[in-house]
């Protein structure tokens, strides 16, 4: 019933992202969009670190790259990642939003415009407000909204911002998150 997942995270989200990526079942067949803030100077190595335990391939996409099911697309450092109609990804070097490039909001908003009620949006641990508005858009378009339980987050700003702005369908601990993910096809 769902067609895509978009995940946003920042400070303290690395472990939970790794856990999510390692929880996909063998018949999982949706694209996953990862919009994650990273330290300014960590431009390489991040993809490799995420890939180690992932059950699905992770790609740092090129502009206009075709979206394929069963793959995770990681927003490249220093680019915004948009999801376009026609099943392509578009990148942009527009100025940072909330001091961030990639911007979680922009990935969520554009993914929501494309996948509407067939989208799952997940906001994880993080230290700023990015993603809250994007998750609200997911909700307004009928998609499923999930937030990591702030009690489980190393940094709670991002999840709390999302909870106060959008109507959240599930607030999950890391274990609950992994369990939920493992049941998706």
């Amino acid at each position: 019933m769902y067609k895509a997942i978009v995940i946003g995270g920042s400070a303290g989200s690395f472990q939970v992202v790794t856990r999510i990526l390692s929880s996909f079942s063998p018949n999982f067949n949706m694209p996953v969009f990862l919009s994650l803030h990273r330290l300014k100077h960590v431009r390489s190595g991040f993809l490799e670190a995420l890939t180690m335990k992932s059950k699905i391939p992770i790609i740092e996409p090129n502009d206009k790259e075709q979206i394929k099911p069963g793959k995770a697309y990681l927003a490249p450092a220093n680019y915004h990642m948009y999801i376009e109609l026609g099943n392509r990804i578009a990148l942009s070097t527009e100025e940072p939003v909330h001091h961030s490039r990639p911007s979680i909001d922009l990935s969520f908003i554009t993914a929501s415009n494309v996948y509407r009620e067939k989208l799952i949006g997940i906001i994880l641990s993080g230290a700023n407000h990015d993603g809250a508005y994007g998750l609200k858009k997911v909700q307004e378009n009928g998609g499923l909204t999930i937030v990591q339980n702030p009690k489980d987050c190393q940094v709670t700003t991002m999840t709390e911002a999302a909870i106060s702005l959008a109507k959240i369908d599930h607030v999950f601990s890391i274990d609950q998150m992994a369990d939920f993910i493992s049941k998706l096809k």
């Binding site: 996409p61 090129n62 502009d63 206009k64 790259e65 490249p76 680019y79 990148l91 070097t93």
Partner: peptide
Amino acid sequence: LGMHESIL
């Protein structure tokens, strides 16, 4: 081209 641009 840019880091994530390619000729498709």
